[in-house]
Design a protein around this nucleic acid. Structure first.
Ligand SMILES: NC(=O)c1ccc[n+]([C@@H]2O[C@H](COP(=O)([O-])OP(=O)(O)OC[C@H]3O[C@@H](n4cnc5c(N)ncnc54)[C@H](O)[C@@H]3O)[C@@H](O)[C@H]2O)c1
Ligand SMILES: NC(=O)c1ccc[n+]([C@@H]2O[C@H](COP(=O)([O-])OP(=O)(O)OC[C@H]3O[C@@H](n4cnc5c(N)ncnc54)[C@H](O)[C@@H]3O)[C@@H](O)[C@H]2O)c1
Lengths: 215, 215
DNA sequence: CCTAGATTGTGAAGGATTTCACAAGCCCCA
DNA sequence: TGGGGCTTGTGAAATCCTTCACAATCTAGG
């Protein structure tokens, strides 16, 4: 699991900072649509449940994008954050596991809209292989490595049963995928140059349970 | 959004601690199944990608559960963590939005298995209302407040389009729900005694994008 | 019953992140 | 052209979280 280190000059960026940048971006897009030409750190902080100092500190890791006395140019800051997050391009994504979650994701419009192109879907079940999901046909997982390499997919979404997740993660890593979004519950072991993020439903539910039980 | 504060004696528990407890619990269950009677902080740390000191510190917030020289009794520690997380009971859950994500969740076995009972499902679409999902029929969202109150549902999962999420969250809060798991992208504004957790797919994908762009 | 070996529980130290607070800079208007 | 009002960018302080390090204490074995 890769750390948030960077190659040149930029030191180490904390994960919470990246999370917040992603939020700021969403708000900036709203503000842009609403026709606002500039926005202050205070306004961004307000909608993002944080403080203006936090917003400015977050941005300061990457440069000086604002104008004192005025705030930030909405369009310019949007573009900067998109660039910082690597969203000034599209990414090729494969989905492994075309079950309930996998097919929901494959049909999710917001995915492509935000620059994540689903170029491949895989399953082991012969009843599913060959069918189309939102324009992409489901391939047999046997061909995973070959197809991933040919398509040059960079990100994989894992929506397979937990007991096979580790095996698929290893195969994906070997096939050149460097980023995995995992929906299963067990933490994956991957090479150091592969980043894994987990969408762990059980954990989130348990955090809610804890909050309810201890209020 | 409620903070991780607690009523009597127990101070404030950091969110990362609760996350890790949830992980430890999963590992403990595996160890129990494998027939291990005791387990050391070092072993738990190993599988959880952390340190033994971290494991002991996490547990120490809640009591002394181990035996020096020996480690922890697997079964007893499992029970303790379940109690701490509020998993020594079942919780009543409603799902709002029976679309792609909502119905995948409703049919998800692991939900009930871990003590989260789906007692109600809601949608606004008349084509969906009345159908059954895994033994629960889909109700019209018009009746949300009445049904939530009658069932005494405590947790809600929000799988509706982002533009209606805030409205539903407010209605749920008023109907007595104190915990919400939100799948939409925009942060929700809720009363202070309601805890919200977000499963934000877009944000996770963007964190992966950042990692790829900056390696 | 005593010693060797292992592991916990926890203050204190260290590190990371957030918040504070203010000088510097920009715009507008008189 | 100069002053007032506002907002940024950023060191320093404060807070939060993790790691260290070791005394306390348990088991097992002779
Ligand atoms: N459904 C949910 O609401 C939900 C919620 C949270 C987490 N999850 C997790 O997401 C994962 C998928 O859940 P789901 O509900 O979609 O399950 P599912 O059974 O509907 O889908 C799993 C799919 O993976 C395929 N598969 C199995 N082995 C495979 C392999 N080796 N290679 C490729 N494909 C393979 C199966 O054929 C199936 O289509 C599970 O790990 C589950 O725990 C699901
Ligand atoms: N599908 C995905 O893979 C995915 C992934 C991440 C996030 N999300 C988010 O999850 C949410 C749901 O996504 P989806 O793909 O399931 O969408 P969907 O359109 O399939 O489902 C939404 C459902 O909500 C219902 N609905 C609309 N207004 C409602 C209301 N006022 N009350 C009750 N129900 C109402 C609709 O009838 C529909 O059945 C969205 O916010 C989406 O952005 C979806």
């Amino acid at each position: 699991m890769k750390d948030f280190t960077s190659p040149i000059s930029v030191k180490r960026i904390a994960e919470p900072t990246v999370r917040r940048l992603s939020l700021y971006l969403r708000f900036l897009e709203d503000f842009e649509k609403a026709g606002r030409a500039t926005i202050s750190s205070g306004e961004l902080a307000h909608v993002g449940h944080t403080t203006s100092a936090q917003v400015r500190k977050d941005l300061s890791f990457f440069g000086s994008f604002g104008k004192r006395g005025l705030g930030y140019d909405t369009g310019a800051l949007t573009a900067q954050i998109r660039r910082i997050l690597g969203l000034d391009r599209t990414w090729k994504v494969v989905i492994v596991g075309a079950g309930k979650i996998g097919s929901a994701l494959a049909q999710h419009r917001g995915f492509r809209e935000r620059g994540f192109d689903v170029v491949g879907i895989f399953d082991v079940d012969p009843h599913r292989v060959g069918y189309m999901l939102d324009g992409v046909s489901i391939s047999d997982v046997k061909g995973l490595e070959a197809i991933v390499r040919r398509l040059e997919a960079e990100i994989a979404v894992l929506a397979v049963p937990p007991e096979v997740a580790q095996g698929i993660a290893t195969r994906l890593s070997k096939a050149g995928v460097h980023a995995i979004l995992d929906f299963s519950t067990e933490p994956l072991k991957v090479p150091a140059d592969v980043t894994v993020r987990s969408m762990n439903l059980a954990m989130e539910m348990e955090i809610l349970s804890f909050a309810l039980a201890n209020r």
